[in-house]
């Protein structure tokens, strides 16, 4: 199933009219617990605005006055459920929410770690270098030939390598540790991207992925002959750590690279997609 093709459950912590406010500690505990489990929560308090209602399924939590819960759920019985949470711990409330999510067949939050590139279109020049570079099919182009992130969940967790090849510093990974990849403002010195790209390519011998793969295979072959498995493991970790530090590429990514033949095939596909997108822009 596509990441984008799923039902979402809206959770509302209601403390408005016809309800009694929760005790402050309980409110914080409930919110912390639900957020920790990946749910989004609308807290309706004494003042201030919230986002408007929509047509999706909703679960309303609260400490309701007599009859209020029934009235509320009767307003939209197909779409809305109401649960009394007075006296419940955060863990118990989370269990109620999870049960409703399962019944409504809504998306399970947290099933996928959200690590993917975000394009800053104020900076992007649509050069397609990211599309050409990525072997995992994360990028594509829209019908007008404009670059876009299409398969977010194909991205390798913690790998920001494509942002390193962007000459305009236009690719962000918001969960990355440092700027400008994390979204911090781009400084002049950050625009030395071309230089950085050359440095990485030179370091790894030109074709980054095939070189990484070859190194990995050589290492596997060498270490398989080692009798001292601990020493072999240490050497391997050292080798991968060095590569990972040099190119900022996680060891997990290096270890999961496909065969050399598959790399060539995917690289050819990516190049063809990039060329088609560039041609579409010129039409």
């Amino acid at each position: 199933m596509s990441l984008r093709d799923q039902t979402h459950l809206r959770v509302v912590l209601y403390e408005g009219r016809d309800s009694q406010p929760l005790e402050g500690g309980q409110r914080f505990e409930i919110l912390s617990r639900l957020l920790g489990q990946g749910f989004a929560v609308t807290r309706v308090g004494e003042s201030g605005q919230t986002a408007p209602a929509d047509d999706g399924p909703a679960l309303v939590l609260g400490h309701f006055r007599a009859g209020a819960a029934e009235q509320l759920s009767a307003a939209a019985p197909e779409r809305m459920r109401v649960a009394e949470v007075s006296g419940l711990s955060g863990e118990q409330v989370a269990a109620v929410v999870e049960t409703t999510r399962t019944e409504r067949q809504a998306v399970q939050p947290g099933a996928w770690k959200p690590w993917f590139p975000v394009i800053d279109y104020d900076r992007c020049t649509n050069c397609m270098q990211c599309l050409s570079f990525c072997l995992f099919g994360v990028y594509g182009a829209d019908s007008g030939g404009k670059i876009q992130v299409q398969s977010h969940d194909n991205c390798k967790t913690n790998c920001p390598a494509c942002s390193r090849v962007c000459p305009e510093a236009a690719i962000m990974f918001p969960k990355y540790k440092a700027g400008p990849i994390n979204g911090a403002a781009v400084r002049d010195e950050d625009l030395q991207r071309e230089k950085m790209k050359v440095d990485i390519s030179a370091l790894l011998g030109g074709d980054i992925y095939s070189m990484l793969r070859m190194r990995s295979e050589r290492a596997q072959s060498r270490f398989s002959k080692e009798r001292d498995s601990d020493k072999a493991l240490q050497e391997r970790q050292k080798c991968l750590t060095k590569l990972a530090q040099a190119g900022d590429i996680p060891a997990e990514v290096l270890m999961s690279l496909p065969s050399p033949e598959e790399i060539l095939r995917r690289a050819g596909e990516a190049r063809a997609k990039a060329q088609a997108a560039l041609a579409a822009q010129q039409r």
């Binding site: 990441l3 984008r4 799923q6 979402h8 919110l31 639900l34 957020l35 920790g36 489990q37 990946g38 749910f39 989004a40 929560v41 609308t42 807290r43 309706v44 308090g45 004494e46 003042s47 201030g48 605005q49 919230t50 986002a51 998306v107 939050p109 947290g110 996928w112 959200p114 690590w115 993917f116 975000v118 977010h152 969940d153 918001p174 969960k175």
Partner: peptide, 14 residues
């Protein structure tokens, strides 16, 4: 009143 979300990145991707 306020909106609290677990992770804007996940919501954007989805």
């Amino acid at each position: 009143s306020f909106e609290a979300v677990a992770d804007l990145c996940e919501m954007s991707a989805r």
